[in-house]
């Protein structure tokens, strides 16, 4: 092993664009996953095997009533708000305004936590359980994926807020830029989820 010195300290922009591509590629996988979930939902809905997409009432259990899709639309709106505040923080980083960074990223972290909690609350409020036929299964698949997404968003949001607070984004701030890509995907994926749940 040679005692090479680290002569190749790369420019933050290079590192940033590389990281961005990496995240986009991972998003490709996540998008494939989310689209497959939609496929599952609409395939089972269209097949309606044995009329069990939304089972009718039996002696032991009430008829399955689809969950109100408004909750999913509220989540989409909230995710849109998250995107906006993250953007606000990003502009703060561009103009080197630490207060704006803290404010934007802090609000982003807060919104991501709210999103996660609100999604869990919605999942607990529905009047069917996971074993009530194909629609119920799909409902929990979609909302479960959405909850997982918001959990990751919360991780990213809190981390970014903390890093912003520590002043790590004073010179290079591609992390916020990438978080923006993630927020866009959050808006789109909640939109897809809301769209599906509006068509039970």
């Amino acid at each position: 092993m040679s005692t090479q010195v680290n002569t190749h300290h790369e420019h933050p922009d290079v590192v940033g664009s590389r990281n961005k591509l990496g995240v986009v590629l991972i998003l490709v996988a996540d998008i494939a996953f989310a689209l497959s979930v939609l496929f599952v939902y609409f395939y089972l809905k269209q097949q309606d095997v044995g009329g069990m997409w939304l089972p009718r009432a039996t002696e032991s259990q009430a008829a399955t009533v689809p969950a109100n899709a408004m909750g999913a639309w509220y989540l989409t709106l909230l995710a849109g708000l998250g995107l906006l505040v993250n953007n606000y923080g990003l502009r703060g980083a561009r103009t080197k305004n630490p207060t704006q960074i803290n404010l934007g990223l802090g609000a982003g972290a807060l919104i991501s936590i709210v999103l996660f909690v609100y999604q869990i609350i919605q999942m607990r409020q529905v009047e069917f359980t996971v074993t009530w036929g194909a629609y119920a299964s799909c409902y929990f698949l979609i909302t479960g994926l959405s909850a997982l997404h918001f959990f990751i968003t919360a991780f990213i949001g809190i981390g970014n807020w903390n890093r912003g607070r520590l002043g790590l984004y004073s010179s290079d701030f591609w992390h916020i830029d990438i978080a923006n890509v993630w927020w866009i995907w959050m808006v789109v994926s909640s939109l897809l989820g809301a769209f599906a749940l509006s068509n039970p």
Binding site: L44, Q47, V49, M52, V130, T131, G133, C138, L141
Partner: peptide, 13 residues
């Protein structure tokens, strides 16, 4: 969990 994605008795396929 007892979901029925693939179980035809519960609307799966």
């Amino acid at each position: 969990l007892g979901t029925t994605f693939y179980d035809t008795r519960g609307g799966g396929s």
